[in-house]
Simulated scan of single mutants.
Amino acid sequence: MNKNMLGLLGLARRAGHLVSGDSCVRQALGKKQVRLLVVAADAAPRTKKIYRQLAQQMQIPLLELAAREELGALLGMTPRAVIAVKCEKLAGRLLEYYQAERSDQPED
């Protein structure tokens, strides 16, 4: 995850456009407030499967980024397996950075 993505996630947190933790994310999903889901790369397989299904059902983009420790540290919290971005513009920018980062990586 590059510095731009980390910075945007931090900005989203400070602006109140980010929720984390299973119950808070599910609540935001229920209220249709989520524009982007971020699941930790080292989250449990069941957690990843659940959020992939929810993202697909609700037609919300999902990114698999960083480790739980890193996501938690970014938010100033304990390790987090899932976070949700509620702002459309920030979600769009994060997706742009993610796609740019992936296109810069050499193919194996």
Rank of each mutant, 00 (worst) to 15 (best):
N4E: 14
N4S: 14
M5W: 12
L6W: 10
L6H: 05
G7D: 13
L9V: 06
L9M: 11
L9C: 07
G10K: 08
G10N: 07
A12L: 00
R13W: 08
R14W: 06
R14D: 11
R14Y: 12
H17E: 15
H17R: 10
H17G: 12
H17S: 14
S20N: 09
G21Q: 04
S23G: 00
S23R: 09
C24Q: 14
V25T: 03
V25E: 01
Q27G: 07
A28C: 07
A28F: 09
L29S: 03
L29R: 03
L29I: 08
G30P: 05
K32C: 09
K32A: 13
Q33T: 08
V34M: 08
V34N: 06
R35Q: 13
R35L: 06
V38P: 00
V38R: 01
A41L: 15
D42N: 13
R46Q: 15
T47G: 03
T47W: 14
T47F: 08
K48R: 15
K48Y: 05
K49V: 10
Y51L: 01
R52D: 10
R52M: 06
R52V: 02
L54M: 01
L54D: 02
L54I: 06
A55K: 02
A55S: 03
Q56E: 08
Q59F: 05
Q59M: 12
Q59A: 11
I60W: 03
I60R: 02
I60L: 02
P61S: 01
P61R: 00
L62F: 01
L63Y: 07
L63C: 08
E69V: 12
E70S: 09
E70G: 04
E70P: 00
G72D: 02
A73N: 08
L75H: 04
G76N: 01
G76E: 05
M77K: 14
M77W: 10
R80M: 10
R80D: 06
A81L: 00
A81T: 03
V82S: 01
I83H: 02
I83W: 04
A84S: 02
V85A: 09
C87T: 08
C87M: 15
E88F: 04
L90I: 13
G92P: 06
L94C: 02
L94Y: 03
L95S: 02
E96G: 04
Y97G: 06
Y97P: 08
Y98C: 11
Y98D: 14
E101Y: 07
S103H: 15
D104S: 14
D104L: 15
P106D: 06
E107I: 10
E107D: 15
E107Q: 15
D108K: 15
D108C: 13
